[in-house]
Amino acid sequence: MDLALQLLLQGVGSGAIYAVVGLSFGLIFNTTRVFHFAHGAILTLGGYTILLGVQELGAPLPLAMLGAAGVAAIAGMACEILLYRPLRRRGAPPLLWFLASFALLVILQNILLLIFGGVPLSLSSGAMGRVALGPLNVSELVLWKVAAGIAATLTIAWVLVGTRLGKELRAVVSNPEMARIAGIDLDRRYLHAYALGSALTVPVGAIALFDQGVSPDLGETQLLIATVAVFAGGIGSYLGGALGGLVLGLVGAVAVYVTNASFQTTLALAAMTAFLLLRPNGLLGIGLRRA
């Protein structure tokens, strides 16, 4: 039973991280409907920026994360301005979008590989502390993951409900054409979605620095999980990505419990994909808009 509880905690921890990635990808995908593959590389870029900030500039971690959020936001906006906006202007069909975005991921990832090498880099100096939580012995890392998940979810919920940006983003999701007619500057809001979504990946990079380390392909794995999370959570729902991510983490924990760790990813992905086939609208979704 103790093992089950520990696994459950691990599942909640990874689920919280998946939730952050899901939220960030979902913010961009739901708003712009661009399958932003390069988001994975932006996440990795954030992780490396924190590393540089702490190791080379001697900045405290929170400051380095703030800087990384800025760098990620700028990189995300650059993707929109340099690549996606020109494609939108010329009304390119979806196939070309996928290709361009996939290519961008490969370019960014390889640039990071050329600069930092393929070996995972980390900031951790020895084992993380453990905290007694009732009968359980919880790794501090899990707590940080959960904190990141909650913080990201609350941030997005607040943006959506409490700000003008959020109101307009929700309008864009439900009907972009109508939103435009109602006077919402789509180009500007798209840009904001990229900035916010990219900045939101920073906690994931930060935690990876104390966990498995940051390597150029960190974001690729995270991106895959995020896409499945967003689709399982439900297209058209900004918070669906968080829910999908959490569920994905828990399903992974169950998979470890019933088989062993090597089949975790396989089973979790298979379960979520099967779920998607049965219920394409996802947990919270309004369904993919028919073209």
Binding site: T265, L269, A270
Partner: peptide, 15 residues
């Protein structure tokens, strides 16, 4: 179709 096919095929490739 479209986006769903990408996610599905991506998940399949990783599996």
């Amino acid at each position: 179709e479209g986006d769903y096919l990408i996610v599905g095929s991506l998940a399949f490739a990783v599996i």
